[in-house]
Design a protein around this nucleic acid. Structure first.
Lengths: 340, 340
DNA sequence: GTGAAAGCGCTAACAC
DNA sequence: GTGTTAGCGCTTTCAC
């Protein structure tokens, strides 16, 4: 809590609190005499005045706080998004409140309620499920909300993500060019837009390359190494021949590689493998992972900019802009020519 | 901003706002008739009442918000700390505001001021410099503040960190047992407690093992791979013979390994290497990094608990407890017998 | 056990 | 250009 109040600054400067308030507020400063402004600012400086944003917020119903909802901050995918968002937000004088929901819907619900109680001006949500009751609540409450990374089924909110379709197509093209014809997809969970859309893009890409779409999609329960392990076990058990795997993200790829390695399959000699996201240490692994690089920091920044814009123009109807950031295939050691 | 106000709940329940307030407040609930409590809670539920924490905070000068100051969220060291802190905080009904200072003092100063303006109840600081003006301000303002991971010179605040001395000693012991006698330390920056204390511990450990402490400490400008690269270049240029390197953290170790590799030195055949922190993918590298595992999530959680305790007992004098969490040496492939 | 009244620190109409 | 007044939504003495 701030110690010295506006009244005291006003007294020190020999003016009325309202005048001091105007002098300190950049927007209202014009209505005040230059010399008075000086006097007030001096007094504020001298007393070490820190304005009480709560009181201001109570009066103006603006808090200059934005909330960011993350499923798991220890997943390296999210820190860059947080960073991008924080940079933009703090640059605009906003404070970021963060919650890590641990992928738990009830936790998320509680945290979002608590943040609303704190009067946050808007939300950036990175946890969106394909059908998401929490997001629905935000929508119907009319709170400025931007979806990042994952979106919901109905496109009623602005969304900033990556061009997943292109990313997956680049993977398939690359593998096809290497001669692969037996390509399998380790799909992300069906309750995420990324899981669904990457799978759709995968099937489409196979068709483009006239590769029959057989039982070539294996859905994973989560975006984790453990889920990748489990999926690879199913793949092996299924007996379906394959020479390449397109994993829906890097973690799944890593889990799969570990399991297949234990089964005696070497990458890239016996099979090729691609990931998605290009997490920090992927290029340091042996073999280094071929994957799709996504501009994560920019994604967070763009989401924050979109949110700020919405907040600033709160009068107008919010038109849900969907923005897909460009991705890039990074070819490394896990992809090679198809075995003869 | 919350829509429905307490007055409306009160009207709906047919009671005075003050009564509704008491009924909704767990601490004051006892003063109200059981049946009235029921009636009010029903009404609140029905109307979807979300209390306005700002207004409450204005009245009680408590915000139930804690701030976490992080130097760089994209450094994998910090996400687990954030997660641990967030879990404890949200479990206690607190909200976490996060700032990523990008290691920039001015940025930090501004963000801390802004958070103070928002009336946060306390700070967890992971950016502490050995001499830190921002922390000093927090101290003299009497705001509950806990240092995590890094501490300041004067121990005037509670601190939760890792047992660095033990960690470094374990590294040196391990290397000495493998026959290494020419051990070099890549020290962290001198403006961090970890940099200083690990270096001190290193020298002490050498002495314990009767290894002469020559020009065996190279200070790095930052805790980054780039700084590790640069330090390794200086090491090579200096011409000092070495068979093992104790790096002050994993990133420095990685940078050094890359540079030494380019110079034709193989790890662990030509030299051994240890890191510190055991970041997520260290065990997946080739060779996998021998390093010191630190309970990072627990560190964040412990810091949060310490802060909450301070906030709860704000009347009493805060006694700065320094708590060092146990560490563990994880032996992997980067350490081997000393070359003959 | 419940109502009345005051006020947390600030800002926005409205006067002058 | 500056002072006056009222009130954001809530809690908390103090009466009753």
């Amino acid at each position: 809590m701030s110690r010295v109040r506006l009244v005291e600054v006003a007294r020190e400067a020999g003016v009325h609190p309202a005048t001091a308030s105007r002098a300190l507020n950049p927007n209202a400063r014009g209505e005040v005499n230059q010399r008075t402004v000086q006097r007030v600012m001096r007094a504020a400086e001298r007393l070490g005045y820190v304005p009480n944003t709560l009181a201001r917020g109570l009066r103006t119903s603006r808090s200059f706080v934005a909330a960011l909802v993350i499923p798991d901050i220890t997943n390296s995918l999210f820190p860059p998004i947080v960073r991008g968002a924080e940079q933009v937000l703090s640059g605009a004088g906003f404070t970021l409140v963060l919650t890590d929901t641990n992928n738990d819907l009830e936790m998320e619900r509680g945290q979002v309620a608590s943040m609303r109680a704190h009067g946050v001006d808007g939300f950036i949500v990175a946890t969106a499920r394909w059908q998401d009751p929490v997001v629905d609540e935000l929508v119907s409450a009319g709170i400025p909300t931007v979806l990042v990374n994952r979106r919901c089924r109905e496109a009623s909110l602005p969304f900033v993500g990556s061009d997943d379709q292109r990313g997956v197509r680049l993977c398939v093209e690359h593998l096809a060019a290497l001669g692969h014809r037996e390509i399998v997809h380790l799909a992300g969970p069906a309750d995420t837009s990324t899981g669904r859309e990457r799978a759709v893009a995968f099937r489409a890409a196979l068709r483009e390359h006239r590769i029959p779409v057989r039982s070539s999609v294996i859905e994973c329960a989560a975006y984790s190494e453990a889920a990748g392990v489990e999926a690879a076990q199913r793949l092996l058990a299924g007996g379906r021949p394959f020479s390449a795997i397109v994993a829906a993200n890097d973690l799944l790829a890593l889990g799969a590689m570990a399991t297949l390695g234990e089964a005696g399959l070497r990458c890239p000699q016996d099979y090729s493998l691609t990931g998605f996201n290009d997490l920090p240490f992927m290029r340091k692994l042996t073999p280094a992972l071929t994957t799709v690089a996504v501009p994560l920091t920019e994604m967070g920044a763009a989401a924050a900019r979109t949110l700020l814009e919405w907040i600033a123009t709160s009068g107008e109807a919010a038109r849900p802009a969907q923005s897909l950031l460009p991705v890039e295939l990074v070819v490394r050691a896990t992809t090679g020519p198809a075995p003869a």
